[in-house]
Nucleic acid binder design. Sequence first.
DNA 1: GCCAACGTTGGC
DNA 2: GCCAACGTTGGC
Length: 153
Amino acid sequence: MRYWLMKSEPDEVSIDDALAAPRQTVAWTGVRNYQARNFMRDAMQVGDGVLFYHSSCPEPGIAGLAEVVSTSYPDETQFDPKSPYYDPKATRETPRWMLVDVRATKKTRLVSLAELRAAPELAGMQVLQRGNRLSITPVSPAEWKFICKKLIG
DNA sequence: GCCAACGTTGGC
DNA sequence: GCCAACGTTGGC
């Protein structure tokens, strides 16, 4: 059982959108970074905990909780020439981009980026490190517990 | 809109 | 394999 922080632009898929989806589940499409892909492909397991983070928006921060509900499989958008996520180098025989399904479990109060940065307990959190741009980052059990208990309640 | 930071591309 | 140029992310 591992824990992750996954960024989503709320204009694309917000926590409300995820909760409103069938089975509260969305396919995590559009990741086009190898490190983030590798986390989904190689490290994620069904049941892993997810902090659902809103990025590139007026109030960036953790907006909800979710869980991984599938193993990885090819991201369909890489094969679709009309998709903004189309990758001409990907084929169905050798897909390049993999994703998992994520089920939203709870909308929380917005725990802002500033609030996360203000907590000494979270100083080592990967998403808070200088220059971090990864859209998926691991979260330690201690960080997960602290965020769930102290910040979300 | 700005810009720091980082990833990717492609010439050599 | 190096590295400059370019593109993207994402907070502010």
